[in-house]
């Protein structure tokens, strides 16, 4: 299972951080920290299946609907 974030859609609301803090965080500028490592689309490494519920919640609660779960 991977998580994919469309950083063009993402507006750094940070709601995902409450749902899945193991995966999502904000950097010191209040931006999604994935912006430090990707420009347009962030694709995670393989994530543990135990995170699925938290990631589904993060995808559901994203105001910009920028988060997708693959696999």
């Amino acid at each position: 299972m991977k998580v994919i974030v469309d950083l063009n859609k993402c507006n750094d609301h940070g709601q995902c951080v409450y749902s899945a803090p193991e995966v999502f965080s904000l950097n010191g500028r209040g931006e999604l920290s994935f912006r430090d490592e990707a420009k347009e689309i962030y694709v995670s490494d393989q994530l543990d299946e135990s995170l699925r519920d938290a990631l589904e919640e993060a995808a559901d609660i994203c105001p910009m609907q920028a988060i997708e779960i693959e696999g």
Binding site: D12, G14, G28, G30, E31
Partner: peptide
């Protein structure tokens, strides 16, 4: 604003 402080205040 204060976007970096959301977690703290929530």
């Amino acid at each position: 604003g204060f976007v970096q402080s959301h977690l703290k205040y929530r």
